[in-house]
Nucleic acid binder design. Structure first.
Length: 609
RNA sequence: GCCGACGUAGCUCAAUUGGCAGAGCAAUGCUCUUGUAAAGCAUAGGUUAUGGGUUCAAGUCCCAUCGUCGGCUCCA
């Protein structure tokens, strides 16, 4: 790529190319749908989109793009790019713009917001009212736009552009407003880059955790059980239990205490905590029993708080770190469900730390270091932290401004002390407090929010939590909510895609497959398997009536780390012929030697075989 | 929830303008006894997501419901 990696995207050639591609695509749409009203069409990561309002069909329903329409639009778009035209920049006063865009209601709305000094075309707040707006024109296509663009349409190579899909999208991202028709496209410097990108999309599809989950027998979603309620198959359950026991061990070492709480609780519990109003729209309907209402728990915190309150607490009890792999239920909208990464019932590797105010910083740093330990063990090196703060203009957040300020300051101080750099994003907080999220970039450069740490002054107040301090007086503790994995479902989904199903040895559901060459070697294979199992290795014996080659192929497709081929030679010498899923043939080695090596790698949670 | 596409055997997919539902893999049985990514033969497997409708005739056309996928909104 010709761009300097440090250059902001907004100043790059690709940004101009994509922005210009969006304009020419809109020009093409206007050729097929002259009545289409234009909304916005910005560049995005890897491409661009443009939103259109196509009016209504004869039945009064909003018109939409058919797949055939998209094909036509792409052909026209390429023709228009090649036809070449200059992008000319100019500006109009607000009054001129109002008049010029009189028939473009969405553009008018943008102009009014700019004139009022509210937000720019991307919805970002602007500091002061705008008096002149930018205009870009090529041929007869004129758009309200601050650019930048390429000089000529030909600079967007027709063979480096592709229309990808269309979908509905709400105007201004607001589901209460009109739903527009969005067309997504992608554009690159040249055809080779486009092909590379399309290949990457294909790769991402091939390692989709839903596809691999089926192939590798990890999980199953049954229509009869319900959407978004995954069933963990034996191999998936092994993987999950390995992760859980790893974290349990790390928590024991750090003084966490286990607790177990039920899956439902009285509605009043969540009214007290404040979860009910905030999560109302995404909760299962309350269960009515004997004039009482119960809720499937949407969060574990209130239950853990009741454990804190089960007895009087002293400063000597603090910090109290209660941990549970707690399953919660949220009624996500049907269109939001996605394999394991977006479900309706999921298990949080949850913990709530009840700390004295003066312990907050140290405990927070301890949690950050635990999360770093978890990521490091997984072999995740590419991640960043994000400080999510409240949006003062939103009513989504509870509690007094001082509490928020205190929480944010505490996180900043702790993060700085821990040497953790982070970005700040307003409106990314939990309703009860600010949080530090850990965002992981997988091998395909996709970002996923995993671990989270949240500081909470609100719930201790709501539940009137207290402890007796050295001074003999009641003091209020502070809570830290945290989850290094986030949710077991999402984490495993991401793990599947990151490793493409070839998990590190310690996580592999089957670590070794025994491959006897003929029937007469099955007994020896079983003997070896018994020995390996006794040492804690997960082994399967492939005693099927198949050729060795087929057994290797099957094990390979299941991404089993080690295949141990045994025939006459191995049986005579007490050896195993080691083959790895990386197609590496290590030849015959003594069983004891293989076992020692494998158990070492398992114990050290090595990523490499 | 909204917009669009889709739903055929356990899996991956065929089935001409509406005209006898099919293949490969997997499964099961038999034969072969095999040295580093697919042995051969045979058998079984379906109310074409569900419910209505149009038609002499529906996998195919129409309506509704459920589900999946891609987005939007939302989110661990």
């Amino acid at each position: 790529m010709s761009e300097n990696d440090n250059m902001p995207y907004e100043q790059s050639d690709l940004y101009r190319i994509r922005h210009s591609a969006a304009h020419v695509m809109a020009e093409a749409v206007r050729e097929h749908f002259p009545e289409a009203k234009l909304a916005i069409g910005p560049p995005i990561a890897d491409g661009f989109y443009y939103d259109f309002d196509l009016g209504q069909d004869e039945n009064g329903k909003p018109r939409t793009f058919s797949p055939e329409d998209l094909e036509k639009i792409e052909i026209t778009m390429k023709k228009l790019l090649k036809k070449n035209a200059k992008f000319e920049q100019s500006s109009k006063t607000i009054a001129e713009a109002r008049e010029f865009f009189a028939d473009a209601p969405y553009k008018l709305e943008l102009i009014e917001e700019l004139a009022a000094g509210k937000v720019d075309e991307n919805g970002n707040p602007i500091s002061e009212p705008v008096t002149e707006v930018g205009i870009y024109q090529h041929r007869n296509f004129v758009d309200l736009c601050r650019g930048p663009h390429v000089g000529f349409t030909k600079q967007v190579k027709a063979n480096a552009v592709k229309i990808l899909r269309s979908s509905g999208a709400y105007w201004r991202g607001d589901e209460n407003r009109a739903q527009l028709q969005r067309i997504y496209g992608t554009a690159w410097h040249n055809k080779a880059e486009l092909d590379t990108h399309l290949k990457l999309l294909g790769e991402a599809k091939a390692r989709d955790h839903r596809r691999l989950g089926k192939q590798l027998g990890l999980f199953h979603i049954s229509q009869l059980v319900g959407s978004g309620l995954p069933l963990w198959l034996p191999k998936g359950a092994i993987l999950r239990e390995e992760l859980e026991s790893f974290l349990r061990q790390a928590q024991v070492e750090r003084g966490y205490l286990p607790v177990i709480t039920p899956h439902i609780g009285k509605l009043d519990l969540y009214k007290t905590s404040g979860h009910y109003p905030y999560y109302k729209d995404s909760q299962y309907t309350p269960i009515d029993v004997d004039d009482e209402q119960f809720l499937l728990k949407p969060m574990n915190c209130p239950h853990h708080i009741e454990i804190y309150r089960s007895q009087p607490r002293s400063y000597r009890d603090l910090p109290l770190r209660l941990a549970e792999f707690g399953t919660v239920y949220r009624y996500e909208q049907s269109g939001e469900l996605n394999g394991l990464t977006r479900v309706r019932g999921f298990t949080v590797d949850d913990s709530h730390l009840f700390v004295a105010p003066e312990q907050l910083e140290e405990e927070f740093i301890g949690v950050v270091s635990l999360i770093q330990h978890v990521f490091q063990t997984m072999g995740f090196s590419d991640f960043r932290a994000r400080l999510g703060t409240n949006d003062p203009n939103s009513d989504k957040y509870a509690g007094a401004p001082e509490m928020w300020a205190k929480g944010i300051a505490a996180i900043r101080k702790a993060a700085d002390k821990a040497g953790m750099s982070y970005t700040v994003e307003e409106g990314e907080a939990a309703f009860y407090g600010p949080k530090l999220d850990f965002i992981f970039r997988d091998v395909l450069k996709r970002e996923w929010q995993l671990g989270t740490v949240q500081v909470d002054f609100l719930l201790p107040e709501r539940f009137d939590l207290a402890y007796t301090a050295v001074d003999g007086q009641k003091h209020r503790p502070v809570m830290i909510h945290r989850a290094p994995f986030g949710s077991m479902e999402r984490f495993v989904g991401i793990l599947i895609e990151h490793f493409n199903g070839a998990f590190p040895l310690w996580l592999s559901p089957v670590q070794v497959v025994m491959i006897p060459i003929t029937d007469r070697h099955v007994a020896y294979a079983n003997k070896v398997a018994t020995e390996l199992r006794a040492a804690g290795v997960r082994v399967e014996v492939d005693a099927s009536n198949e050729r060795m080659n087929k057994k290797i192929r099957n094990a390979q497709l299941q991404k089993v780390p080690y295949m141990l081929v045994v025939g006459d030679k191995e049986e005579e010498s007490g050896a195993v012929a080691v083959r790895t899923r990386e197609n590496e043939d290590r030849g015959a080695i003594p069983l004891a030697e293989f076992l020692a090596g494998a158990t070492d790698l398992i114990a050290s949670k090595a990523v490499e075989l």
